[in-house]
């Protein structure tokens, strides 16, 4: 990835809304301790929103770190591994019960599976097929508009 700050933010929001939104819709009833109820969906979408909001902040940090790189690139591996710190932070907030819209502490495995699947799908998509429907995206530093 060769992102600009604007490109990072746009890609982050686009991916989490599109892929995160669809995957959450499909996966929620299959997660341990959750079902097809409105409460379950409220929990998972609140988690997704938390990932998105915190992610915007994370991107600012990543952009700063990227400035130390001569190439001004963001290695493919970083895109996958940053899932660890981001996931850990969200789980910490969930465990502390400070995430708005989530009552109680959800099942760890429910969170782990949901977060992991979304992160992996987005990472794969960003590093490959995204170039096909959005042919200018890679030249625009990850900007979509």
């Amino acid at each position: 990835m060769l992102p600009t700050l604007n490109g990072r933010l746009q890609t982050r929001i686009f991916m989490l809304v599109v892929f995160g939104g669809v995957i959450t819709l499909l996966i929620t009833p299959l997660l341990p301790g959750l079902d097809l109820s409105g409460d379950s969906y409220r929990t998972t979408y609140a988690i997704l929103l938390t990932v998105l909001v915190l992610g915007v902040l994370w991107e600012l940090l990543y952009h700063f770190i990227q400035q130390f790189r001569w190439e001004k690139d963001w290695p493919t591996m970083f895109g996958l591994l940053t899932g660890i710190n981001e996931g850990a932070l969200v789980w910490l907030l969930l465990a502390l019960e400070v995430v708005p819209g989530v009552d109680g502490v959800p099942s760890f495995w429910a969170f782990f599976i949901m977060f992991g699947v979304i992160w992996l799908v987005i990472w794969v998509w960003t590093n490959g097929p995204m170039r096909v429907p959005f042919i200018r995206w890679r030249f625009f530093g990850g900007r979509i508009v």
Binding site: M1, L2, F139
Partner: peptide
């Protein structure tokens, strides 16, 4: 060239 001239920060 530094990699980001291909579409990232330096290109911009």
């Amino acid at each position: 060239y530094p990699k980001s001239v291909w579409g990232g920060q330096l290109k911009k």
